[in-house]
Amino acid sequence: MTVQRLTFAKGAKHGLPILLGYLSVSFAFGMLAVENGMPLWAPVLISLSNFTGTGQFVGANLWAQGAALTEIGFTILIINLRYLLMSLSLSQRLSDKVTMWQRLLIAFGDTDEIFGVSMQQRAPLTFGYMMGLILVSYAGWVGGTVAGVFASAALPASVSSALGIAIFAMFIAIVVPPAKEVRPVTMVVLAAVGLSCLFRWVPGLNRLSGGWVIIICGVAAAAVGALRYPACSMTEGDGDA
């Protein structure tokens, strides 16, 4: 296989499948954020400034529940800790010519999918290639959000009441496929669900505020999983920017 130079055009081309995938996810985000009570501009601003899947859904959900700023910030920070690993790997693959401010831009677009596609390239990753990949994906993410916001405004009340479950169903769609196939994830998910139910239904424990319960359950379950299965490599992560 000949190693070709990675250009902007090539990055943009590789970004097209990501754009298509992002359209549906961000459409759902725009719709659900408005159903959760956000003003129309908010989901668009979130997609513009966050550019991350899971964190945005979780943030919109916690905001709707009236969580405190620290809870929201801390929960999303914990969810996003996985980016530390991806950015670390990415930094080893970048071309030597990539400057510091270019690294700062690339970091903004280091989503699960963009990371996955760029890691498949053999040649050193150039700034142009990364920008092609990121800009096309970003267009899909923001465009889908705008479309979702307008779609929600057209919904009748009886339909929108049924959408209360939709955000949770989306989380299920993210979690179930890897939990079905990767054994450690199965265990982490079941442990987190068990703990979360304990904190809800056991008197005394249920006085703790929701955001912190989620952090405790998620961290404890992931720690147990990592202790039992410390050497798992998995490539699942579809749908989650």
Partner: peptide, 28 residues
Amino acid sequence: RFLQSFLLYMPYGILAAMVFPDILYSTA
């Protein structure tokens, strides 16, 4: 390796804890 897998599993733990049991109270 512990830290690597810990970071890998964390999002799933968080999401699962968000869904249950809240999903059961999300409708009428």
